[in-house]
Design a binder for these strands. Structure first.
Lengths: 224, 224
DNA sequence: AGCTGTGAATGACTTCACAGCA
DNA sequence: TGCTGTGAAGTCATTCACAGCT
């Protein structure tokens, strides 16, 4: 996108892969591996070797020719590049099934993201304890964001409430939002929004699944 | 050039957007709208108008020049194209926080995906009721897939168990898998796998967030 | 006039292929 | 020798711009 000048620009497609490499490298480190070639890393990450090398070259990684990359050093570089040198604090808006699952999801904390607040509007949910946190009222959002230094907001409310949740987060100064509501959100260009629509992922699978059985007989599941 | 095989080929990038259009059209239909222009639909979907037109043209949609697309007809075409003319049955492997949330996630059923089974290996979880289903033992997978005509498997187990879960699903004949475990899965090319790594989504946000403050105070060390 | 459908132009990303270093 | 780093070539996707229908 319109990355301002200043630092080298890394293509979006490459950025999306860096976390995968990071994850693979952590596994390698656990196994005690000291170096890794682009080919080995590619195999683990499910991409090809040239892509790995180019992706890493975007931020001036230095492998050793004839040997490969130093696992520990590459982890350090990736951590710095991905901004994982400190924990990022997140707040979750919406304490339904999904919000609750996200709040207690161990995978976040392990990878440097700490959920420091969960809010909802439903009195039934406010006060309940989820993943070590007490669900707060949505009106507390501003104070939670300010006091706990929140950088990322996660939207896990029904679609009809998602835009309002976004507006509130933005008002509170949050500029990075992960949206799980199946709706397109409006916000200033300053605000980064990533959408994860779980049903869309299934629809994409269904699309391909449906295509391969053009020739298949009466095998398709019958209507519910 | 387009591969001149049996059916029309739709670019992957376009396929990923069709469900978004579908979702927007459902909203339009609810509002009682009869027609929609590519520009209006683009605005709702958060893309540009030329893209909408090209995407729809891939499967021979027919809008009316001077007027736009017939909302109801376009929904029908998209449903057919996306294979949403019947419900898809899904089984979830892993009944932890995430698996449980997915099993009771209303958004799936609304969009044509029915969760017909949830299994786990943990005796503590087996027998529990989640979203109207009783959690089964993982050994029941084969019978659930066969008897309930499951087409899609959802993996919501810890990374260390994900490959085994995949192998089991594939053995049972499942050829479309949605993987929430943060690990790259191995399977034959026949099997389609889509990965959703929630922590990666946050990492991508963090990357951009970290970039916009080059002049960050105490956090970013400046390496040579 | 208004808006779609689409070739052609542009841009982004991927892969190739090889020079050059350890 | 083995493997990285990278220009150049190739592939895929997006956007432009306009002919052509209603």
């Amino acid at each position: 996108m319109a990355s301002e000048d200043g630092r080298r620009a890394i293509p979006d497609a490459a950025v999306a892969r860096l976390p995968v490499y990071h994850r693979c490298l952590l596994d390698l480190e656990t196994e005690g591996r000291v170096t890794v070639s682009s080919e080995q890393l590619a195999e683990m990450a499910g991409v090809n070797a040239a892509k790995v090398r180019k992706d890493l070259s975007h931020f001036g990684s230095y492998g050793t020719r004839g040997v490969g990359y130093d696992v520990t050093q590459l982890i350090i570089d990736l951590r710095r590049e991905l901004g994982l040198t400190h924990n990022w604090r997140c707040v979750i808006v919406g304490a339904g099934n999904l919000g609750s699952a996200l709040a207690s999801f161990a995978g976040f904390r392990e990878r440097g993201f700490e959920v420091v607040g969960v809010v909802d509007v439903d009195p039934q949910r406010i006060g309940r304890q989820i993943g070590g946190l007490v669900v707060g009222h949505e009106d507390e959002l501003a104070s939670i964001v300010a006091e706990r230094d929140v950088a990322i907001g996660v939207i896990a409310v029904p679609p009809a409430a998602a835009q309002e949740a976004t507006d509130r987060l933005v008002e509170c100064g949050v500029r990075s939002i992960l949206n799980f509501a199946p709706t397109v959100l409006d916000a200033s260009d300053e605000v980064q929004i990533r959408n994860v629509d779980l049903a869309i992922e299934l629809q994409i699978l269904a699309f391909h699944e449906g295509r391969r059985s053009d020739d298949r007989p009466a095998d398709a599941p019958s209507p519910a």
